[in-house]
Amino acid sequence: MSNEIRIISREDLPKWLDQMLGTFTVVAPTRQDDYTNFGVITSGNQADFDAVNTRMSPKQIFFPKTERLFGFATDRQQVKLDDTPQQITPQVLFGVRPCDARSIAMLDKVFDTDVYRDQQYVSRRKATTIVSLACKQLAPSCFCTRLGSNPADMAGSDLLIIELPEDRFAIGTLTPKGADLLTAADLPAQATAQDAQAFDKAVRIAQDTTVKPIDSDKLAAKLARIFDSAFWDRWHDRCLGCGTCTYLCPTCHCFDIADEAKNNTGQRVRNWDSCMFDLFTLHASGHNPRPSQRQHLRQRVMHKFSYTVDRYGQAFCVGCGRCVNRCPVNIDIREILDELEDYQGG
């Protein structure tokens, strides 16, 4: 739990961001036409504190859509590799919603492993302080509570900000990194005992929910059991295989590796990829273990709710609702979950 609470007014939030700008690159939700996305800000006023959530998830801050792994130059029979690491500057990721912060803690389990540590991801993670903003309003597509989370979940955050009445915000310190950011800040108000209570109460209220969370272990076991069942016959028929769901999902992390070269010099890059695409599993021989959309969709659900439970001990869905909102044919993961829980077939 939080050991130090500070108070800031709505008016002072942008000023705090301005203070950070001296030391950090600050990435925050910014308004673009009719939606919000994370972007680098140059002034605290550019941050949007009220958007329910950003269209894209923040995963690209740590795991960019496309990223250079190393460069190469070939000269007749010789090769020179250029593995100069990219410049990674200290940054603050500000205004992340708790569901998304939680997804970052999940991605850590994939990339920040003892063996085969993914250095670019880990360097960015290390250089970033995550300041989350608890949700005061939920979108119709939000379902974090079904995933055992809540609008003030602290997983993955260094600081958590909760809005209190009268345009005041309480900032809870969750990690030493968060504490450093707060110590460096010139914030006017120390929290009173009453404020600290208000913070704790807000956290409790967020947790106090009537929604019954899914039992991820049970669901994982059930999914393994019904792999070959008729359950999977009906969801995929309208799926376009467009990959929007995986692209927007904060926990989807599959990628492709490809070489880009011109005149003997080039780079090896990794790009986001998607299990919803036919080519994902196609062997050079023509064999494809997952040739149909039925299998693609099943893979996506199995990966999120069964394989990750086996592998990392938790379901890799935070209930952000992005896939629900943006699927062009309204395939709704919540509906799949509901029916899964009820499904009796074998």
Partner: peptide
């Protein structure tokens, strides 16, 4: 076994059979 692979180190999510990655 053989599955299409990219990273070879259990990150790119490509080579799974169930919860096992063929690469690791």
């Amino acid at each position: 076994l053989e599955m299409r692979m990219k990273c070879g180190i259990g990150k790119c999510g490509r080579c799974n059979i169930g919860s096992k990655y063929v690469c690791i």
